[in-house]
């Protein structure tokens, strides 16, 4: 077992040293594709921050003055109750702690604004799911009526807030997904080619190994390890670059005005760690696929 491992690492190391240019090209391509992949995940998560408030089909939010007690809110709940099953399918109250949690995500990139909000001054919310979200006119009518009620701070409609954002998100996800898939295929093919070249360079050794009775797996594994390492190295480089870019972006967003609508578009909740792991695992997968197929195909060199 130990001698096998020593053999494995010696052969893999020798193979990588023999062809540094191809190895570097493989790692860079893998890194670029995985970076775009990682950034796509990060951007998606940023959009999710922005949209989190509106999860579950919520189309209208009625903000209630901070400090309005249960009795004062009764008027609002009555008004909502009247519309139950008429225009409204469901509504729920998002209390102080719930609203603070929403603010955490909404102002993720703007700690100054977030810092000004607390239990005493944050408006609480009624989140309203309409029967038919496409009936914009009805929702607008409701908004106008609810704005008249006492203790209502403001009323927002998803339609006004989200239209642009969802379209932007769809745009980003479609194009970046196409890009990273294409680049990952390229990275996998490059690793495939690197391994093919490595196997061709060592065809005499492979011939001897087969003649003395080495198993196909024994011959294959060092090459597969080489591809795996290239993929993982690409993932690690992508991961570092992603942290750097995300850090710069987050620092930049803090300087944006609070009403820019961009303050939610950051990731600071530890999601970056998950993305790092995903990116490295994807690197390992493309490396193994590329080298595994090459190592199987070219065993008969």
């Amino acid at each position: 077992m130990i001698s096998r491992l020593r053999y494995l690492f010696r052969e893999t190391g020798a193979s990588i040293r023999r062809n540094p240019t191809l190895s570097v090209a493989s790692v860079i391509t893998a890194a670029v594709s995985l970076l775009i992949f990682g950034l796509t995940l990060i951007i998606q998560h940023g959009f999710d921050n922005l949209l989190a408030q509106w999860e579950g089909g919520v189309e209208m939010i009625v903000y209630v003055n901070a400090g309005a007690g249960e009795e004062q809110r009764l008027v609002i709940e009555e008004a909502l109750g009247q519309q139950q099953n008429v225009t409204i399918e469901a509504w729920s109250y998002c209390d102080v702690s719930c609203s603070l949690a929403d603010a955490d995500r909404l102002f993720a990139g703007d700690p100054v604004t977030r810092g000004q909000l607390n239990e005493l001054n944050i408006p609480t919310q009624y989140k309203v799911v309409p029967l038919d979200a496409t009936q914009v006119e009805i929702l607008r009518g409701l908004r106008d009526r609810y704005l008249e009620l006492p203790n209502v701070y403001s009323v927002q409609l998803a339609e006004e807030q989200l239209d642009l954002i969802s379209r932007l998100q769809g745009f980003v996800s479609t194009y970046t997904t196409g890009l990273w898939i294409a680049l990952m295929v390229a990275a996998s093919l490059l690793i495939w080619n690197t391994i093919r070249t490595a196997m061709f360079a060592r065809r005499r050794e492979i011939e001897v190994m087969k003649l003395v009775g080495a198993t196909d797996w024994f011959i294959r594994v060092p090459f597969m390890l080489e591809g795996l390492l290239q993929g993982v190295a690409g993932g690690a480089v992508a991961s570092i670059a992603m942290w750097f870019i995300n850090g710069r972006w987050t620092a930049g967003v803090e300087t944006f005005p609070a009403n820019s609508g961009m303050t939610a578009l950051v990731v600071v909740d530890g999601y970056e760690w998950r993305v790092s792991i995903i990116v490295i695992v994807f690197g390992a997968i493309i490396g193994t696929i590329g080298s595994g197929t090459a190592a199987s195909k070219f065993l008969d060199v």
């Binding site: 130990i2 001698s3 096998r4 053999y7 050794e205 190994m209 009775g213 080495a214 024994f218």
Partner: peptide
């Protein structure tokens, strides 16, 4: 090499 690649110990 011939022994190594068939997994013979050191």
């Amino acid at each position: 090499f011939a022994l190594e690649v068939i997994g013979k110990p050191k």
